[in-house]
Design a protein around this nucleic acid. Sequence first.
DNA 1: ATAATCATTCCAGCAGATGGAAGGTCAAGG
DNA 2: CCTTGACCTTCCATCTGCTGGAATGATTAT
Lengths: 133, 133
Amino acid sequence: MNISDASQASGLPNKTIRYYETIGLVAPARTANGYRDFSDADTERLTFLARARGLGFSIEECRALLSLYNDTARSSAEVKRLANGHLARIDDRIAQMQALRGTLQALLARCQGDDGPDCAILDSLAGGGPVRA
Amino acid sequence: MNISDASQASGLPNKTIRYYETIGLVAPARTANGYRDFSDADTERLTFLARARGLGFSIEECRALLSLYNDTARSSAEVKRLANGHLARIDDRIAQMQALRGTLQALLARCQGDDGPDCAILDSLAGGGPVRA
DNA sequence: ATAATCATTCCAGCAGATGGAAGGTCAAGG
DNA sequence: CCTTGACCTTCCATCTGCTGGAATGATTAT
């Protein structure tokens, strides 16, 4: 299985697969001509990676997850710990984004959006106090 | 006003201020000894930048906002357009994060989190179908 | 005079890829 | 047999937005 097939199977771009090899997330064999040769296990790893990344796990978290995946003596508690940590970070980010969204929308509500130069958004960005909602 | 004072006034780290100079967001004068010399207008720009960045505007958006800020013939509609675009992107990101959060939490709910190796999270990452909520 | 605290520049690196150049390989068609 | 096109390879640069550190110069305080 060459890289395009592996890409097809996993949904990851060729470039990304090569990148994942350079950082040691996957280690396909090579054929005589130097082409990568992906086994089924390799493409499983890639699919796993595509999904874990899709869920927002960092590369290092993915590495840990893959290692747990390959470790039959793992405890699911360890996996859960990782995932819970990730969930907490997602919650933080969502909260941050929502706060920011609130401020931005409040500013937008106060901006006329007409041909004149007066603008509550610019005023607030430039003005004395903190950016208020 | 040297760089540390400007940092104090704007809340931006020295490094960031230097960086902003290299990318042309601010252009402080220099004193005879080569030190940067920030005018009040410079520190205003920096404060403006600190706030706009704090609201999540990209550097290029900040550049545009600053240019509108300095343009007395601006129309507030233009500012509003920029801010609305930013708001839309924030909404997209929030929606994405929330979808992702939902999936992750559903997986977590199905993971025992005990000493055994069976784990719904790993199963789902590895398994045949899409990662389901 | 000297030490501490500024300031300067430049280079490297973070995540996580992505784009492109320069070149090797392979299968099909004329 | 040769060419064309579609693959594949490596390596280097780029993106965002800084941040850290090294090496060096200037100012200030003792």
